[in-house]
Design a protein around this nucleic acid. Structure first.
Lengths: 157, 157
DNA sequence: TATTGTTATACTCTATAACTATA
DNA sequence: TATAGTTATAGAGTATAACAATA
């Protein structure tokens, strides 16, 4: 479990520390956090004009794919709790991109739908996503993209 | 560029949407965000008793690896701006885990060092990191871990 | 009892801007 | 001029707790 990196990753030069656990560059979580941060920053730049965050775009997209979805359904797909979901839905509703309705079958549930403005915003957002994804994918082969998605999926499934 | 997923990832069932850009599950950034969130949550649980965040542990670790590092050096390695770095260093200094000093060669710079308590905390944190990483790596082969790190590194290098 | 939505609260992360001191 | 640190500010994400309405 300690001699793996030599196979694919460039060998670590003799470290100044010989700890039990190794170096911070061998920690998967460290790289995941840095990678997420880098992508987050590029996303924010790409979406500065639209003034949308990753989460907000994801919510618009998911509501469009699943019209009438309840907030809890959204929370499950986004891996968020109810309070966080509320906050995001509130912001989108305040901007008239999304609207709440009452469920016919379950009085406790809200039904979520995009407004006309929301659908237009999503269409624009998808264009920006395409540019953002191309920037991201530019450093990978098509095969590597598939592998990366597969490996990442195992972390949140 | 659209027929890649069949090779490695399970085929997408006929979607209800036939958009230009495809489905949200084909977006790398979407999976990266979910994966990061899942790992972030597990990290938080693991470090609840120590009351340390990912960033704080990373800072302690990096300062220990590079004694006397300046805040800007820390910011570069962490991909953070100066203000964010300040906030984190302030918290760690307030808890007496880290201390600031003046640089001999450059009056503008701070030199950062761990306190005795900071070194003890880092040692404990590394044990928790080991458990956290084992949870994370449990779903991968050693080869896959190396591949994942290599692919993630390309996003933040 | 369990679920859903809601509200309130608090902390962290992130970024920007403006200021001071030093190079 | 540029760099390093500092301070203030603001928005967003994350989580917890408690409450009301409904199943």
């Amino acid at each position: 479990m300690a001699k793996v990196k030599e196979t694919l990753v460039k060998t670590t030069p003799p470290g100044e520390d010989a700890d039990d656990i190794g170096e911070i560059r061998d920690i998967v979580g460290f790289h995941l956090r840095l990678a997420h941060g880098a992508v987050y920053r590029h996303f924010t730049e790409t979406f500065a004009e639209l003034d949308l965050t990753q989460k907000q775009v994801s919510v618009l997209w998911l509501v469009d794919d699943h019209p009438g979805i309840a907030q809890t359904g959204l929370a499950q797909r986004m891996r968020m709790d109810r309070a966080t979901t509320m906050a995001i839905v509130n912001r989108l509703e305040a901007r008239d991109l999304l609207q709440r309705g009452k469920s016919d079958t379950d009085g406790r549930k809200q039904t979520l739908h995009l407004t006309v403005a929301g659908k237009a915003m999503l269409a624009t957002a998808k264009e920006a996503i395409r540019a953002h994804e191309e920037w991201l994918k530019s450093r990978y082969t098509a095969r590597e993209v598939a592998v990366l998605i597969e490996l990442l999926t195992r972390l949140h499934e």
